[in-house]
Amino acid sequence: MKLVVTIVGKDRVGIIAMVSNILAENNVNILNINQNIMEGFFNMVMIVEMTDSKIKLQELQKILKEKGSEINLDIKVQHQDIFNVMHNV
């Protein structure tokens, strides 16, 4: 299952490290990263693959949300299909 992880918040040191660590610990593979800083705001979109992962999607969402909110980041994890259906005929 491919997922889209979006991270938005104020920029600081270690955001990518924190998120990728959590993903690695849970055997979630990163396929694509796109990141930029706009006026001090951190924006990142990751496409990840969790087929080989043992963790449930809901648990992963919970961990990322909790860790994110500790440093004022909004982290969303969504099934890729919602974007596929909306933007492809």
Binding site: V4, T6, N34, V45, Q80, I82, F83, M86, H87, N88
Partner: peptide, 12 residues
């Protein structure tokens, strides 16, 4: 292939 803009648009 979905683009970053697509993802941003949906979430907005």
């Amino acid at each position: 292939m979905i683009t970053i803009n697509d993802i941003m648009e949906t979430n907005r």
